[in-house]
């Protein structure tokens, strides 16, 4: 058993690499050889994780991945616990339908981070994903619980059809955020365009936002500004075409 399992990208994939076997809590009982034998799909063909990554360490729920993973899909799918640090960019479907644990991306992430499996209505049901860069489209789509933080900009349809949970975007959020939201919160510190099916409620200081932002500052060391902690937010309720108990909280002033 080691403190951390380290996966280092040794052979860059020539095609899309579906590596939904990279799940922190799954490595708890596996030695380095077994981790390397885990199945992946490279360009639709079967391969082994060890064909692309060197594995250091064994039997740990703490995982570090190094290398450019922009072509690697499905990392952290169904993750239920443990901690995963990705030192670089990562591809689509990060933390797909995850249920617990923490994923910390020191880079940008592709589409559908924390989203649902194909055909499923529910995305992540717990855990935390921190993306220290930009997020692709549909981050947090269909989320049932959990937290997604994007320190850069978020792509189109962020938080689409969320059932609950929270998405925090430090930068700007592209169009279509919160469409079909049932419950759940999108906290936008930067620019955001609310869908027409959202209705403005009030401008106030949501008391949980300082708790949340201070937690992000303390737990992840994120550069949260005091003006966002102490600031006022516009509350837009929606999606009124759905249950309407969700919200977009848009920071407007100190």
């Amino acid at each position: 058993m080691s403190d951390t399992v380290v996966l280092t990208l040794a052979t860059a994939p020539a095609h899309t690499l579906v590596a939904d076997c990279i799940v922190a809590d799954r490595f708890a009982s596996l030695d380095a050889r077994a981790i390397g034998e885990l199945p992946v799909l490279h360009g639709g063909r079967r391969a082994r994780l060890g064909d692309f990554f060197t594995v250091t360490g064994e039997r740990s729920t703490s995982l570090r991945i190094e290398g450019d993973l922009e072509r690697v899909e499905g990392v952290g799918t169904g993750m239920a616990g443990g901690e995963m640090l990705i030192a670089g960019n990562v591809g689509p479907d990060l933390g797909l339908a995850m249920e617990g644990g923490r994923i910390d991306v020191h880079g940008s992430a592709g589409e559908n981070a924390g989203g649902a499996r194909p055909g499923a209505s529910r995305g992540m049901a717990g855990g935390e994903i921190v993306i220290r860069g930009d997020a692709g489209a549909r981050a947090g789509a269909g989320a049932r619980r959990g937290l997604i933080v994007v320190t850069g900009n978020a792509g189109p349809r962020t938080g689409r059809a969320m059932i609950a949970g929270t998405v925090v975007v430090f930068g700007s959020t592209a169009a279509g955020a919160g469409r079909f939201l049932k419950r759940g919160s999108i906290v936008a510190l930067g620019a955001i365009e609310c869908p027409a099916t959202f209705r403005y409620a009030c401008t106030y200081q949501p008391p949980h936002v300082p708790v949340l932002l201070r937690y992000l500052r303390a737990r992840y060391g994120l550069a949260v500004e005091d003006r966002h902690i102490a600031g006022r937010y516009e509350r837009h309720s929606g999606d009124l075409a759905e249950l309407g108990k969700g919200e977009i909280l848009h920071w407007v002033a100190e």
């Binding site: 959990g146 937290l147 929270t166 919160s185 949980h208 708790v211 949340l212 937690y215 108990k245």
Partner: peptide
């Protein structure tokens, strides 16, 4: 009412 889980605690 609405709940939020922050750092493992529910509010």
């Amino acid at each position: 009412q609405a709940s939020k889980v922050i750092g493992g605690k529910r509010y």
